[in-house]
Every structure is written in structure tokens, then in C-alpha cells.
Amino acid sequence: MLSAESLAKIDRELAKYPADQFRSAAMSALRIALTERRDTGATPAERCLNADVIEFVANYIGIPPVAAYEVATFYNMYDMKPVGKYKITVCTNLPCALQGGVNAAQYISGKLGIALGETSADGKYTLLEGECMGACGDAPVLLLNNHKMCSFMTPEAIDKKLAELE
């Protein structure tokens, strides 16, 4: 289900916690599983978490599957729905909005021809609205594939970034 490399990463996370507290690694383990699927999935559906993967992760770290599912659905960065090769999450919360966050989201939406919450027909892009990323000073900010933060995303910067993703 997961590569040896991902399992080794999960093992490293497990080692951070006391021996009987393996559950603590659930968040990392799900993130590692999601990252592997994002990096290797060929279609939007293959890039998100699904029942089999969550159950596998739960069994690997030794917690009930439904407990892992609770975690996967509580934290909103875990992709539970099909997602494009490039998932772009733009913060539109108040401080960001005041510094162009909403405009940036609209600009990307117009450029990609998809509304917020949608994935492009070719499965390449998903555009989402995000909540506070703790980087308001850098607004407009967006997260690319959950982990890469792009700061000061003026229209020019967005053009440049999208060009890199081609």
C-alpha cells in the first residue's frame, strides 16, 4: 500500500513518542501517506486519501481505522476528495483579504478557468480557499500542494508561479 520509504518515514515519526503512544504518529503517518499518493498518483482520485489507505495507516500504527478517519477529516489539509496535480490553496481570511488575498484567488480562478473548490478538467489544478496560514504579513499567500508556501503573490508573481507549473 505504501512504499518502503514512506514506511521508514512513519517509523521515524513513531520514534518521537513514548513506546505506548504510537497514536501520536497518526497525523504524520497520514500526511506521509497523502504525500506519497500526491507524488505518485496519476489521477485526482489517486492523489487523495481513501478508505484503504487510511485503514492501512491505522493498522500500521495500531489504532482503530475510525480513529484515523476522525483525524483525517478533522484537519482540513488532508485531501479527502480528488485533487489536481497542483493544489493551490489561497488564504482569503480577513488580514490576507485586506492585502489582496481575495483578489489573488479571483485572479487564479480567472486564469485557470475554475471556481474556488474546483479541479480543472485535465486534473492538473485544484483551487481552494484556505484559512489562516499564519503568514498574514506575506499576503497574498498561497500553499502549493500543502507544503510549499508562496508569499507576496501579486498577479505577476502568480503568472510566474503558474508558468513554473506548466
Partner: peptide, 10 residues
């Protein structure tokens, strides 16, 4: 003894 029901989402 085994959590079979959960509260998903938030």
C-alpha cells in the same frame, strides 16, 4: 473495547 464509531469532520 474498540472504537468502531467515530465523529468525523468538525
Amino acid at each position: 473495547g474498540f472504537q468502531e464509531i467515530g465523529m468525523a469532520n468538525r
